[in-house]
Design a protein around this nucleic acid. Sequence first.
DNA 1: ACAGATATAGGTCATATGACCTAATTCTTC
DNA 2: GAAGAATTAGGTCATATGACCTATATCTGT
Lengths: 221, 221
Amino acid sequence: MPRRASKKVAGELPSSNPREGTAVHAKGTERVGHILDAAMDVLVQDGYAGLSLRGVAQRAGVSLGNLQYYFPTKQDVVRALLARYLEQALQRVHARVEGGGGEPAQRLRHAVDAVLEDQDSPQACQFFAELWALAARDAMVADALAVFYAGYRAGVVELLRQLCPDLTPARRERRAALLVAFFEGLSLFRGGGNLRAASVPGLEQELRVLLEQVLLPQPAL
Amino acid sequence: MPRRASKKVAGELPSSNPREGTAVHAKGTERVGHILDAAMDVLVQDGYAGLSLRGVAQRAGVSLGNLQYYFPTKQDVVRALLARYLEQALQRVHARVEGGGGEPAQRLRHAVDAVLEDQDSPQACQFFAELWALAARDAMVADALAVFYAGYRAGVVELLRQLCPDLTPARRERRAALLVAFFEGLSLFRGGGNLRAASVPGLEQELRVLLEQVLLPQPAL
DNA sequence: ACAGATATAGGTCATATGACCTAATTCTTC
DNA sequence: GAAGAATTAGGTCATATGACCTATATCTGT
């Protein structure tokens, strides 16, 4: 679709060469944040197919030129959006696992609560749905997601280590992977997800019941 | 993007008015099938953003005119593709649950095997990833998926009915929903999925171990 | 005040797309 | 062989897009 694919030829322009959302001043950094917020909105509402630089600029209340000053290309926008979001999400995951002390079982309950709460946001659910679809065609997205899920899984592994120390590390790793997959699948059908119409009331309730059954009798999870 | 949004005004053309992949002759039906195959390929490879009528026509080895003879609009293509695929998938689900007699536990194992086998296909996994993303913006897709998952869940409910008859129907329904969500989540990380790099080896193995643990001791699943 | 970072508005260009149309063939079926 | 289905090739048109460019204006820290 575009005209030139000219990839930063040797001779750069004499003037500055801004890239990748680099902002020097505070106000600029703020702008970059707003632009990414807008990109997030557009991606979630209109999907990747509907994500255009013009659309993002308009949503952000910023000129196209300004947007392209910070993000010369569409890829740059997606890249930055992804990096920002996944980084924050990862921090939240770890904050959950480490914070909120107490006995392991209680911590697991808290962690589950936190995940479910996150999934109440249609934004987050839809964002991930887009990323899953995108990952197949964009190695950068796939890599970023791989990093994110590795961190996510590591958090769950840590929880499992306290809950059932008798499991070998490898098996903990696998069980954590199963749990992460389970929660991601859940996000499809839960409150914020786009398929909540395909769901069933009382899902979360049942999940918690199941959780208690597994936690109380024997540490076999 | 398009020019006219003219929605079938009252006065139709005097000549025939083909729509929705309607084919009268056998060869035509075959063509429609090939076109939908091609659409599937393109959707999986290039995503919805890359799904163009011209692209599908080329992939199918068919002229654009011919494609539009069967499917006047892009929506028609997606609609038909969805209908065909989900219908077949649903039939397979039910075939699994009913077929392959034996004791309930054995049937569950078979069903799990079948689901995992399906997920080995990158095609299927990616197709669903696209649909999940699409569902938020296309009510038709959301509805079709809702029907599909309702059928899927019904199959699982039937299995649960035999495995643990002591559960109330409502709880069976909820547990089935949890299981379906789990399997869908699994598809993200498994062999065919686009995030297999974010996964862990031995996932399926662990899943089966967990399954046996749940099946053997007590019927508490 | 000065340099450089931010920001705006506007334009260009090649390419792509969906929807629409038509005239001319080739198959199928009866 | 005639009617109608199926198919092709080609064209038109409005709209959109990404990338690229520039001149000008404003803001910021020193």
